[in-house]
Simulated assay, not measured.
Amino acid sequence: MNDSVLEARSLTKSYGSTRALAGVDLTIHRGESVAIMGASGSGKTTLLHVLAGIITPDTGTVSFQPSTGTPAELAGLSEAARSRLRRERFGFVFQQGLLIPELTAVENVALASMINGVKRADATAHAASWLAALGLAGMEDRRIGELSGGQAQRVAIARAQATGADLVFADEPTGALDSQTSQEVMNALLWSTTGQGRTLLVVTHDPDVAARCSRVVAVRDGRIISSAVSA
């Protein structure tokens, strides 16, 4: 479809005798938010990692259509090319944030742009603007250990957006947070992605988080068993 940003076809992935993905077809449309839900061991995190080019499937294809530039089939790219794609066009938010504790909030966010060749001063200014937009003005120089869990996740969200990512992948982004903070983080995540015309893919076990997304995809035993637009 013309509005698709990511198309997966016939994905399989096994770890020894364990079948993590068993023939998955999934289309992610530009500008939508998709929640992938399933029990532990259902294959949802493996699916996210394959869609993001972190791991390659045993069989099947993942096609990425960027907002600008040439479409790419992820499995056909070299590891270096996939790494570049993840740096420049994809953003990531994980449960624990994976921020660098020795760096300040603004340095953590700016680093993503600097790796892509942006000058330090420009990257820092851009990072500070994202932190301010996400309610962290005045906290730029705090190290990660000086922030609350919700604040640290907003730093991670800012980092994911700093490079202008077409698509943000979030793996249990609220898993370590209380319900109020979880809601605040989802507000920030949705505002900074679909609210800006970008696309969000979330793996979650929380039905309240999933309900905030525009579509919920249920996974069981490595297969998609349902895909429904949220009410």
Rank of each mutant, 00 (worst) to 15 (best):
M1F: 07
E7A: 10
E7R: 14
L11E: 03
S14R: 11
T18F: 13
R19T: 15
R19W: 02
G23L: 15
D25P: 08
L26D: 09
H29A: 14
R30L: 02
S33Y: 09
V34N: 03
M37D: 04
A39P: 03
S42C: 02
S42L: 08
T45G: 06
T46Q: 05
H49L: 09
V50L: 00
L51H: 04
G53A: 13
G53N: 03
I55R: 05
I55S: 14
D58A: 04
D58S: 01
T59A: 11
F64L: 04
Q65T: 08
Q65E: 09
S67H: 13
T68W: 06
P71I: 07
L74D: 00
L77N: 05
E79W: 05
E79A: 11
E79M: 06
A80R: 12
R82I: 14
S83N: 15
R84L: 12
F90C: 07
Q95G: 01
L98G: 03
L98R: 13
L103R: 10
T104I: 12
A105F: 05
A105T: 05
N108E: 07
V109R: 05
V109D: 09
A110M: 06
S113Q: 11
M114S: 10
K119C: 03
D122A: 15
A127N: 07
S129W: 02
G135C: 08
G135I: 02
A137P: 12
E146R: 14
E146L: 06
L147C: 10
L147N: 01
G149L: 03
I157Q: 02
R159Y: 08
T163S: 07
G164I: 12
V168S: 08
E172Q: 02
D178N: 09
Q183F: 03
V185W: 00
N187M: 04
L189A: 01
L190W: 10
S192T: 07
T194P: 12
G195Y: 01
Q196E: 09
T204W: 03
H205R: 06
D208Q: 13
A210S: 10
V216Q: 06
A228C: 12
A231E: 12
